[in-house]
């Protein structure tokens, strides 16, 4: 659906994006994750036809964005980082204008407007001037303008930036509800956004792709050890000593009053450990598996500079 191949963009001597390649399948939500100035916005601007690339290819539903820009633009809905709003228009007037320039035929504009206002939850503000509505509603209007021509692909640049926590949850819910009908690519530097809304992720840093894949694939490929966290009432020192001696265990450390035990991924020691703890009477309070989540992954990649 969305294919980016060896995309490179230079601003003078500054390389904003270098040899970036990734693919997003139909009906998926893909996150473009990276720290600020990683090249997320540049990538999106190239994909939407706002900027030309220095080298490489990008296509949407088979339309090359450089060779067939108008065809590609017709099937892309784009929410830029700075929501492009005209404050002196009402919400309905604005959406009507966007429908017109996105080439929605005149007869279909009214129904498209109604549908979008419904989807984006803008009924209460439809006749208010954009300058008078709240930040959360403005973001919704921004999503609405991206949806008005019912595009196959949605490109959302930092859709939840600057919103309060309740609004963030609302917008994430809205984005999730659009999945399936639309292929969505969203950029963010907020980690939980990816785990909560996306099917897959492309992590970029300094304009390069560091890792990409579905969330499961990525966490699996980055996990070297598996393990559990134990919370005990007593006998920490003894437990540490005993667990370290257990065949297969690689490390056992005390951390924040809890014991973290890790072993090789080709074994499963959970049952053995549970039994042992109960037998020794250490007073088991809690036992949970520790999974290496996207946050660790991100930290490893961006801070540690590990390439896949």
């Amino acid at each position: 659906m969305i294919e980016v191949e060896k995309l490179t963009k230079k601003y003078g001597d500054l390389v904003a994006v270098k040899d970036l390649s990734f693919k997003v399948g139909k009906g998926k939500i893909w996150g473009l994750l990276g720290p600020n100035a990683a090249g997320k916005t540049t990538t999106m601007r190239i994909l939407t036809g706002y900027l030309p690339a220095t080298a490489g290819k990008a296509s949407v539903s088979g339309f090359d964005v450089f060779e067939k820009p108008n065809e590609a633009k017709k099937i892309i809905g784009y929410l830029p980082e700075v929501v492009p709003l005209y404050p002196e228009m009402t919400v309905a007037e604005y959406l009507h204008f966007v429908a017109a320039i996105k080439q929605v035929p005149a007869a279909e504009r009214r129904p498209a407007l109604e549908r979008t206002i419904e989807t984006a939850g803008l009924k209460d503000v439809r006749n208010r001037l954009i300058q008078n509505i709240s930040r959360g509603y403005r973001q919704r209007v921004g999503i609405a303008q991206a949806l008005i021509h019912n595009p196959d692909v949605l490109v959302l640049d930092e859709p939840t930036i600057g919103l309060d926590p309740a609004q963030i949850i609302e917008i994430r819910g809205l984005i999730k509800s659009l999945k399936g009908d639309h292929t969505i690519i969203l950029s963010t530097h907020i980690l939980p956004e990816v785990t909560q809304t996306c099917d897959g992720v492309a992590i970029i840093n300094e304009g390069r792709l560091m890792a990409s894949g579905s969330l499961e694939e990525l966490t699996a490929s980055f996990r070297k050890n598996v393990g559990v966290i134990l919370k005990l009432r007593r006998g920490h020192e003894e437990a540490l000593a005993v667990l370290r001696e257990l065949p297969g265990v690689e490390t056992a450390v005390r951390h924040n009053g809890e014991l973290a035990v890790e072993w090789n991924p080709d074994k499963d020691l959970r049952e053995v450990i549970a039994q042992l703890v109960v037998e020794k009477g250490w007073g088991l309070l809690e036992m949970r598996t520790e999974s290496l989540d996207i946050e660790d992954l991100y930290r490893q990649i961006v801070v540690g500079g590990i390439e896949q």
Binding site: R45, T48, G49, Y50, P69, N70, E71, K73, K74, I76, Y78, P80, V82, V83, P84, L85, Y86, V98, I101, K102, Q103, Q145
Partner: peptide, 13 residues
Amino acid sequence: KSGTDELLYTSPL
């Protein structure tokens, strides 16, 4: 200044 040019130039115009 307001960034609305991004809307115009990413529309099929």
